[in-house]
């Protein structure tokens, strides 16, 4: 029952991504192309998602615990460090090349399209590289 609830939440997310156009690389790349074939739609996706989440979180996080778990697991870090900025910069470059972000591509796996499979496979390779690199240099691995 608990897992079914989580499955439905994933379904709502995947349906939202499908309707919004976030899983369409042409649309995403046109959003970035301010000087060319600009399509501002994705600003409305972000606006809609952020508006609902902002007010929803305000209500929910006043409670002492979530309904089916014991604690709210919220990130506690507030420091701005190089991995955050550098990693986000690299993510944006990859997003600007491929047109897929993880949240856009994972639901799109359900379409069975080979381009999505290729992107997600490459994404997993990238994650594996990022987990391995710091270990190779004997430093702290990113979380």
């Amino acid at each position: 029952m608990r897992l079914f609830g989580i499955y439905i939440i994933g379904l709502i997310f995947g349906l939202g991504i499908s309707i919004s156009g976030m899983s369409n690389p042409a649309k995403v790349l046109n959003f970035f192309d301010i000087a060319g074939t600009w399509d501002p739609s994705l600003a409305f996706v972000m606006g809609g998602a952020l508006g609902v989440t902002f007010f929803g979180y305000r209500v929910i996080l006043k409670r002492s615990a979530p309904m089916f778990d014991t604690v709210f697991r919220l990130p506690a870090r507030t420091d701005i460090d190089l991995p955050l900025v550098g990693g986000s910069a690299i993510f944006g470059i990859g997003w600007g090349i491929a047109g897929f972000c993880p949240g856009g591509a994972l639901p799109a796996l359900g379409t069975g399209r080979s381009e999505v499979l290729i992107f997600v496979a490459a994404l997993l390779v990238g994650i594996a590289i990022a987990k391995f690199l710091p270990r190779a240099f004997n430093t702290t691995a990113p979380a």
Binding site: G21, K27, L84, I90, I97, A98, A122, V125
Partner: peptide
């Protein structure tokens, strides 16, 4: 849902790897 891909497969792979590295370091 429409999935229109304006890039080649090698670029998709390069983009995907960069996204994977970036989101991992960028949390």
């Amino acid at each position: 849902p429409a999935i229109q891909v304006p890039i080649s497969t090698p670029m998709m792979i390069i983009g995907g790897i960069l996204v994977g590295i970036g989101v991992t370091f960028g949390s």
